[in-house]
């Protein structure tokens, strides 16, 4: 074996474990403010992802144990689960996870080879194919009269018999949904914002969830597992676009803080857009990637057919990565200032 003969102690497993750990404040907040249903979703997605990963590794002739131990499948599962409505039916969770692991990850070549973020591919497939089921969001406990227990949540998710009234009392439009619907009804932003779902910055409960994801994200940054460029540029992209629109017509475009303090934005900025495999790699490229994703998110929220656009924005930017990387190559030691030709 040639040099070097020593390694520092980092490993892919360690990186992925920190990502999972950084999601814990978000998950805890989720349970606290929205009920324990998310735990069912997370468990189901994790089990599906591990089974699919093992099966695919076996099929492709890869060693199963070391690759399962890298924890990347669990990261995908958690990110997808946290993006799904918390009371989405079991088959939706399974379908999305399977698509993420089997198609978006392994059919593209497995760990390190996927050009699209697997969790976001899973999410995109679901929202395009099953838009109705993708609205089963539990409202924040603060606003709902009925609070589901873990068992009740599981019953809902697994399609058990739950009185229609109970379900109606639990589910609620998300703040982004409420805004979108309101604006479509020709209401002004101020009028829409009188709805009880809206809190200080984002939605009631949702803003805390966003804060918890932000906290986890900052932990990842402090540990240098993610760089500052992508999240900062992503948030800046959202804030600048939203701020620009809001500045010109505050009646038709939501305030920038509201757009920023959505859980999907914080999750996207710190956990999804920072996925190294499908993201840009150069320092300047990361800025371009983040800004682009932020802008596209706002564009989709404002003019697109979906209330939220983080998933599509990131997938679109994933497409641009080779181009971004090629044109943002940094100057090397002792190099001329102009960098590689196209």
């Amino acid at each position: 074996m040639p040099s070097p003969f020593i390694l520092d102690r980092s490993s892919v497993t360690q990186v992925m474990a920190w990502v999972l750990a950084a999601l814990l404040p978000g998950i805890a907040t989720y349970v606290w403010l929205f009920g324990p249903g998310i735990l069912v979703t997370l468990s189901l997605a994790t089990a599906t992802a591990l089974a699919a990963e093992a099966a695919m590794l076996k099929t492709r002739g890869y060693p199963v144990k070391p690759f399962l131990a890298d924890l990347s499948a669990i990261v995908t599962a958690w990110l997808l689960a946290l993006s799904l409505p918390s009371l989405a039916p079991w088959w939706l969770i399974v379908t999305g996870t399977l698509f993420a692991i089997v198609v978006a990850k392994h059919l593209y070549g497995g760990l390190g080879q996927n050009i699209f973020n697997p969790a976001m591919v899973g999410y995109a497939v679901l929202i395009v194919s099953f838009p109705v089921q993708m609205t089963h969001w539990a409202g924040p406990n603060e606003l709902t009269s009925v609070h589901l227990t873990l068992a009740q949540s599981a019953t809902v998710i697994f399609g058990g018999d739950v009185p229609r009234a109970t379900l109606d009392a639990v589910t609620m439009a998300t703040p982004l949904d409420a805004l979108r619907t309101g604006l479509l009804q020709q209401l002004t932003v101020d009028e829409v914002m009188t709805h009880p779902i809206f809190g200080h910055y984002g939605g009631v409960g949702f803003e805390w969830l966003a804060g918890a994801f932000l906290l986890g994200g900052l932990l990842l940054w402090a540990l240098r597992i993610i760089s500052w460029q992508v999240p900062l540029a992503f948030l800046a992209g959202i804030w600048l676009t939203a701020g620009f629109l809001n500045f010109f017509d505050a009646g038709r475009f939501g305030p920038p803080w509201f757009h920023l303090f959505a859980p999907s934005v914080m999750l996207g900025a710190f956990f999804i857009a920072t996925d190294p495999v499908s993201g840009a790699t150069t320092p300047r490229g990361k800025l371009v990637f983040g800004l682009g994703a932020g802008f596209l998110t706002m564009a989709i929220r404002t003019w697109g057919g979906f209330p939220d656009g983080v998933a599509f924005a990131i997938l679109l930017m994933n497409l641009c990565v080779p181009l971004i990387d090629q044109y943002t190559q940094p100057r090397i030691y002792g190099g001329a200032d102009k960098e590689p030709r196209a």
């Binding site: 990186v15 070391p66 690759f67 190294p276 495999v277 940094p330 100057r331 030691y333």
Partner: peptide, 22 residues
């Protein structure tokens, strides 16, 4: 040395490279 896994493009190598390569 442990067995190699696929590259996940985390760019720690780029951060560590004194020749400032990718």
């Amino acid at each position: 040395l442990p067995k190699a896994l696929p590259c996940i493009r985390c760019t720690r190598c780029a951060d560590a490279c004194p020749a400032e390569l990718q």
